[in-house]
Structure formats: C-alpha cells, structure tokens
C-alpha cells in the first residue's frame, strides 16, 4: 500500500509537468498578448497607438520576460513554481497567490454544497426509481430528470434572476456577489446566513442538472445488484426487504458512486465558470475567465496548475476509495 501510494505520487510529477507545458504553449500561441492588449488600452485612453514606438513595446515585453524564447520562459515559470511563487498578475500587479487565496474558498464552498446536495438527492431518487422500476412513477422521475438535465444553465440562471431576484416579479434572493455590503457588521452567524442567502440561486443552477446523471447511475446500479445471487441469499436468510435493499444491495451499488466523487471536484471547479460569471461571484471560475480575456498569463497558469493538481489528486483519491469501499480490491503486489 505504502509503496503503491509512493509510486502514484511520483507519477503525478511528469503528468503535472505535461499538463502545464501544454497549457503554457497554448496560451502563448493564442492570438493576442498582454503587450498588444496594453497598447489597445492606451489607445482607449486617447494615446495614438501608431505613435507608440517599438522601444516601448520591447520595454513592456522585457518587463514581463516575454522577450525570451518560450522554453526559457517555461523553465523560469517552473523555477518560480518550486518556491510557490506564481508571480504577479499583469492586470493589477497583485500577487497571483493572493488573488487565488481570495477566490478559492468561495468556489470550494459553492461546489461542496452543490456536490453534497446532488448526492443527497440523487441517490435516494435513484433507489426509489429502481424499486419502482418500470412503473409510471419511475418513468415520471426519468422524464423530469432529463428535462432538467437538458436545460442550459445560463438560461436557467437568467430565468431565476428575472423571477426570483427582483425585477418585475419576486424579490427573494440577491443576484450578484456572495455577501451584502456592510456584512462585516453582522454577527458571525449573521454573516454566514447572508452568504448562504447569496448562494441560493447559484447553487440551484449548479445542482439541478447534476441529478440526472447520478440518479440514473444509482438506479442502474441498484437494479443490477438486485439481480445478484447474494441478494437471493440475503432473502433466503429471512431478512426483511428493507434490510436486503438498504444493507446488502445498497452498499454494493454505491461503490462506483462513491469512487466517482473523487473526480467530481476538479470537474465542478471548471464547470462553475458560467455560474460565477452570471452571478458575479468572485471565485476561481470568474478569476480564470477574466484572466484568459486579459491574457493575464501568470494567473491563467496558476489556475491551470492548481486545477491540474486537484484533478490528479482527485483521481488518486478515487482509486484509494475503491480499496476503502470494496474489499475485493487491494493494492498489494501492485
């Protein structure tokens, strides 16, 4: 087990380097650069861009280290990474690490609640569907889940904002940010409640489509497990139907669902870009989106690196969870 873990952790290093290298090349190859953006901005400020001399451009490039060959730039980035120095943002010249430290907890809170809710609702729904399989109720659940699944999230977000977030209809929830102005004056619980209140709409948008996949998966799993011989053995013992389902069937059918959760987190951080953008939530998604638009290379690279790491660790965690939930799987001798 220890040896296996060590091997897996070692393997993360080359994979991680590969991912960051590709990201680095892609953003460098993408049209537009921080320098040209800067010059455009100057144009907006009334300075005639044609008059900006080549010298100024060279100077700016030099400032950012963009004058050097690309492999040198990448190596320098790696070198700084080794000391957890992600550099300063091109945009506002604040340290990237500080910006991420502000954004990450927001996104994590948002996504943890969403994942938790998705599991909390999907699994019982899946069990219910499986037990009522091929009845009208099961089919109704399926249809509703697929309708939810196919609604685009930006559209649902807009509908929610229009109907529940002020406008001409109900004004139940705030539609932007994660807390009200002056929230600092509230008590600790008051602040917490205020943040939750702000997160209601974003969380609805993040969760509603997630039910379909997990509920269908848990339904299929349970139906599969119920046909197994050991379920018949459990019944032949004289166990009640509820004990057969909740103890013998459920544990087996949840194995793939539990292990799946390890890979969900990085996926959801990537997936909350749209939601954060719409609801102006200062999280990782919004930060990354804006960094890409403004060719803020250090921020983009930092986010890419963190998400790559989270993904790799997530995969490792889900592999380890297999051992935890399924006694047939062990890493002995691997």
């Amino acid at each position: 087990m220890g040896v296996y873990l060590f091997k897996r952790l070692l393997l993360i290093i080359p994979t991680f380097l590969g991912i960051t290298l590709i990201t680095f090349l892609i953003i460098q190859m993408a049209p537009g650069s921080p320098v040209s953006l800067k010059i455009q901005q100057m144009g907006g400020e009334g300075i005639r861009t044609e008059t900006v001399s080549k010298a100024v451009i060279e100077q700016t490039k030099k400032l950012y280290g963009l004058d050097q060959p690309i492999h040198v730039q990448y190596l320098q980035w790696i070198k700084r990474l080794a000391t957890f120095n992600f550099g300063d943002s091109y945009k506002d010249h604040r340290p990237v690490l500080t910006k991420i430290r502000e954004a990450l907890p927001v996104t994590l809170l948002l996504n943890f609640i969403s994942i938790f809710l998705i599991y909390l609702i999907s699994i019982p729904l899946g069990i219910f569907s499986a037990l009522k399989s091929r009845t009208l109720l099961d089919q109704a659940v399926t249809v509703i889940l697929f309708i939810l699944y196919s609604l685009p999230s930006f559209w649902v977000a807009m509908i929610l904002i229009i109907y529940l977030g002020g406008g001409e209809y109900l004004n139940l929830f705030p539609v932007a940010g994660i807390s009200s102005q002056g929230v600092g004056e509230l008590t600790r619980w008051g602040q917490f409640g205020n943040v939750l209140w702000h997160l209601v709409l974003p969380i609805i948008v993040l969760t509603y489509g997630g039910f379909a996949f997990l509920a269908r998966l848990s339904r299929a799993q349970l139906l599969e497990v119920i046909r197994q011989d050991y379920i018949r053995t459990a019944r032949a013992k004289g166990l009640s139907e509820s004990a057969v389902i909740l103890k013998h069937a459920l544990r087996n059918s949840l194995i793939p669902l539990i292990t799946l959760s390890g890979t969900l987190l990085p996926a959801m951080i990537g997936g909350s870009v749209v939601v954060e953008q719409i609801f102006s939530i200062p999280g990782m998604g919004k930060l990354g989106f804006e960094a890409v638009l403004s060719r803020d290379y250090p921020t983009v690279m930092a986010i890419a690196a963190i998400e790559a790491l989270l993904t790799l660790v997530g995969i490792l965690v889900s592999d380890l969870m297999y051992v935890w939930v399924d006694p047939r799987i062990s890493f002995e001798g691997m």
């Binding site: 011989d229 050991y230 018949r232 459990a234 032949a236 047939r328």
Partner: peptide
C-alpha cells in the same frame, strides 16, 4: 434454509 449453486456469487462480496 437454502444454499445455492454458485458460492462465489451467492455470498455478498463486501461483508
């Protein structure tokens, strides 16, 4: 009580 043909699949693998 009843015992079944396939002892592999008739025992619950996770207990």
């Amino acid at each position: 009580a009843m015992i079944f043909q396939e002892p592999m699949t008739s025992l619950n693998p996770v207990f």
